[in-house]
């Protein structure tokens, strides 16, 4: 019963991602992929070895970052383990 996905709280799902890769899709045209180091009640997240993808008029811009604190305010979707490259 406890393994039923519907019994897993969203925060527990995110907690299980700590130490692994996570794909974050923001509201608007930004996505990030990185190793999740931790998060808080607002789902502000500390990410490491981050790749940031921005969709601009000139095309997709990719930025690499060592370690960031991502504001949880504008997060739309979290995909454990995934990345935009996998979805193409």
């Amino acid at each position: 019963m406890s393994n039923n996905p519907s019994q897993l709280l969203p925060s527990e799902l995110i907690d299980r991602c700590i130490g692994s890769r996570i794909w974050v899709i923001m509201k608007g045209d930004k996505e990030l992929v990185g190793i999740l180091k931790g998060f808080d009640v607002y789902v502000n997240m500390v990410l490491e070895d981050v790749t940031e993808y921005e969709i601009t008029a000139e095309g997709r811009r990719v930025t690499k970052l060592d370690q960031i604190l991502l504001n949880g305010n504008n997060i739309a979707i979290l995909v454990p383990g995934g990345s935009p490259e996998d979805a193409e």
Binding site: K37, V46, T56
Partner: peptide, 29 residues
Amino acid sequence: KVSSGTTKTPADFLKSIRGKDVVVKLNSG
């Protein structure tokens, strides 16, 4: 905690970056 997956909460991060060089990105880009 397992050595590979040491957690770092947002509070830990904020403590660790005081006085450091940072980049702050806004939603506007």
